[in-house]
Write a protein that binds this DNA or RNA. Sequence first.
DNA 1: GCAAGGTC
Length: 764
Amino acid sequence: MKCAIITEKADVARRISFFLSEGKAKSKRSKGHNYIEFEKDGNTYVVVPLSGHIVEINFPPSMKDWKSVDLRKLVESETVIEVKNRSAYSTLKDIAADADQIIIATDYDREGELIGMEALNIVLEERQRRHLGMPDIKRAKFSALTRQEVTEAFSNLIDVNKAMADSAEAREVIDLLWGAVLTRFFSNATGRWGRDFLSIGRVQTPTLALIVKREREILSFVPEKFWRVFVSFDKGGTFRAEHVEGNIKDHRRVEEILSKVRGKDGRVRSFERWEEPIRRPAPFNTNEFLREASRIGISPANAMRIAESLYNRGYISYPRTDNTVYNRSLPLRKIVESLAETQFSREANMVLSLDSVRPSRGRTEATDHPPIYPASAAKKGELTGDYAKIYELVVRRFLATLYTDGTREVREATIEVSGEEFRARGVRVTEPGWLSIYTYHRQAEAFLPDLHSGEEVKAIDWYEEEDETKPPPRYDMSSLLRKMEELNLGTKSTRHDIIEKLQKRGFIEGNPVRPTPLGMSLIDSILTVESKISEPEMTAELEVDMDRIAENKVDKESVVNQSRKMLSSVLEDFREKEDIINGKIKEAENSGETVGLCPVHSREVIAIKKRDHYEIRCTVEGCPINYRLYARGSIKKTDERCSACSKPLIKVIRKGQSPELRCIDPACAFNVERSRMGKCPSDGGDLVVRQSRNGKRFLSCSNYPKCTVSYPLPQMGTVEPTGQVCQYCGAPILLSIRGRRRWRFCPKMDCQFNRRRGDEEPAS
DNA sequence: GCAAGGTC
């Protein structure tokens, strides 16, 4: 008998094969097929790994054109299935399809059930083609990749769950319908076709709405002044106590207090001290990992890419997990022992010196994967840059969850100064515990000496501090991820993607995150209609429907049809508001910062940030002052005019480079003069710095296209001419300036000149 | 050229 086992990803296939075959399984790789094979009890087993979904739903070709398809028809359109993962598809057909038994061993959740069903359908289709009958179809249900879980799952096989797969399929269809219909509507209504399209989706739009809502709160916030009153004392060091009334809004009250207490010493009314634990952090789940990574300056999307790569190279465990409790079977002590052989030996040995290794626990004991931990020890130097930083973060977090709580001593005193009461608080870390391993968080400390009730303390200063109420803070990557998780927007595997999408589409920027004018007016436009698409409730309600489908209380079709009806009426509402929406988006498209005055009309010249360039133009319609500047980074107004043409000068600011002064006219002699680096070795023309559309810089001959000499330039730092000519190839030698380092180089990369050593100039 | 969800 032949049995085919289908898993969601490669390492599950490896683990299952290992347990079931007692280590005798063999990986097979041939003709684009990738699977594992072994024999057991006279039966042949093939284990086929997928990589997530192998098919994708889409519209039929007749519905693909954005401009000509009536959106009312798109709402009612059928969907088709397209194969996305060719190699998994052919492995299923060629290797798995003729098995007598098919065991679906994908992750035990809704998406996993659907992924399994997709694979099963491919197998059944192929069997029909080959006139093979129905195989025995089973489902393995396991929630951890331990020997016990896996062997139990395979000796207690259950049936596949059509209803559960249906619930995930309903989500797919609803997401595509709403996303495509509204994305196309907004893009068509505003004439933003091609890559400038305006996207809308069940997760991305509510996320953008959160950010826009916060920005509106900040914009409309009216700060209110308040004052705090302090007295400083001296006893073995200075400390201060704050008046018990805290934030005082009436300054007359402040004057009253100060006039009463000024010059007077204090008497201690009460003093307390106690110790409290500083709790160890919980093990890392995906969200918490991404939040902490962004605190050390690595964006969620990048942190995820790096984690993926570290996982594939065996350095860390699977990075997509909700779990914050280590499984019993994890050999925690062994992992720590292996880390003791690395640059983290000090920290690892601290853990090993404890009587027993007892890990902290988080709130979620999910069953998917263990929390993120270091799977193997990386030697120093094996990883570099952000990879090393991420690995170190995972290692330190892991060790911190196994070490002891810290302890801090807290002291509190109330001190009376001529009838007015003041409070002082002191905090001191007495036992750092895990804090000396996980060094990313600094504990705020404050000095307060030992005091006793009735004691007199010498006052040395009496003063007020002015402050004002603050608007709520902008989201940063960390708080945004937390908010998304709280509202159930996206999943552990997609949240970072959603954020990156909003950035790439030009809806949000920066960290802390601000919406762009485009992002703000997109949300404003969406809010002209009651639709739920910008609210987390859309997801919440979808979840309820999915549960009902999975419980067989309602079928997929009726949920999808209901959703189509709603979408149809929402679309009608939007169609009525088309002009208003177009107006709002156009307004955002034309909002830009003033960079100076137009020499033709003496009117404002504005710079409008587009997806990949700045549009710099006069506010008078039809004025020839209208340029495109392809620059990464940002531009800044200067109040200076160009000496050559009297148009405004701007500063281009790029990360890692000194600001570059430019005339807004790219062809102006001012810019050309500055970009001239020397003579072309081929035809004697000028070599000038040019920037391509994607922001990369080149040194090219001004006689292009007659002369095609062009050298790529370093992307970081600035470049200056030296007047020197390369003795080997005749190209001009350039000076590269990056931070405090500067060195001479020949732009011809493989030139002999660049192989010399010691060409570094001293820092200026 | 649209969504969100898996995973590489």
